[in-house]
Design a protein around this nucleic acid. Structure first.
Length: 220
DNA sequence: GACCAGGCACATC
DNA sequence: GATGTGCATGGT
């Protein structure tokens, strides 16, 4: 499995080069983007974040003190705006109370502690928590998403859809615990999924075709 | 007009 | 534990 995963990584990296994932200017912006992108296309998140910047709401204190309806109006383009405004407030409250509003202070805490606390916040599930941990805090967690599932399944690496935790551990136990590797790997999976693994895919040019299978010798 | 997008909470069985 | 539904916009 280790060789298969590294083969996948090398093919995608060879096709795309460095992705520099996640696209954001600050760790706090990463966290906001992680919440806004839930079940939402990234292009819509970009608009919402642009609105937040224009209204100078993209800091933990400004966002926390902004009325929820006003916050919601700024993030309308991201969809589910009432729900997400509430989720952003929940995260800001946690960040202010527990870490004095500082993402850098937050990153000083152990991974397991932070992961449990983040998942405990209403509106933050495992994927959103892991986005924040990997890309905003620099912690070695592998982020699993719908594209990860779909790509592995379509290429026969997994037989049936797997639950989040087992799939995360599949990657983490078969790869070196390396933050830049995890960051790039997930970014490459998203790009590959977006370009080649949609419901009506253009599979022909996919860099993962044909894919190395378990037990198969490395082809060069 | 239907379907999808870088989920999650809640209700129900 | 598994499945269904609401949230809601913008692109294809």
């Amino acid at each position: 499995m280790r060789r298969v995963l590294l083969d996948i990584y090398e093919r995608m990296a060879g096709h795309y080069g460095p992705t520099g994932w996640w696209p954001a200017e600050t760790p706090f912006e990463v966290a906001v983007g992680a919440i806004l992108t839930q079940n939402t296309a990234w292009s819509n998140v970009t608009r919402a974040i642009g609105n937040l910047k224009a209204r100078t709401l993209l800091t933990p204190r400004k966002m926390a003190s902004c009325p929820q309806e006003e916050l919601a109006s700024a993030i309308v383009p991201a969809g589910c705006f009432r729900v997400k405004a509430k989720r952003l407030h929940s995260f800001c409250a946690y960040l202010l109370e527990r870490h004095h509003g500082s993402m850098r202070r937050m990153a000083g805490f152990p991974l397991d502690t932070l992961r449990a606390e983040l998942i405990g916040i209403s509106g933050l599930g495992p994927e959103t928590a892991d986005d924040i941990l990997l890309y905003a805090c620099g912690k070695p967690v592998f982020v699993v998403d719908a594209y990860t599932q779909r790509i592995l399944h379509r290429h026969g690496i997994i037989e049936a859809p797997m639950k989040y935790e087992p799939l995360r551990l599949l990657f983490e136990s078969n790869l070196p615990s390396d933050v830049p590797l995890f960051q790039e790997f997930h970014g490459l999976l998203v790009q590959t999924g977006r370009d080649f693994c949609r419901p009506n895919p253009a599979c022909d040019a996919c860099p993962l075709n044909p894919l190395l299978r378990p037990g198969q010798p490395v082809r060069r």
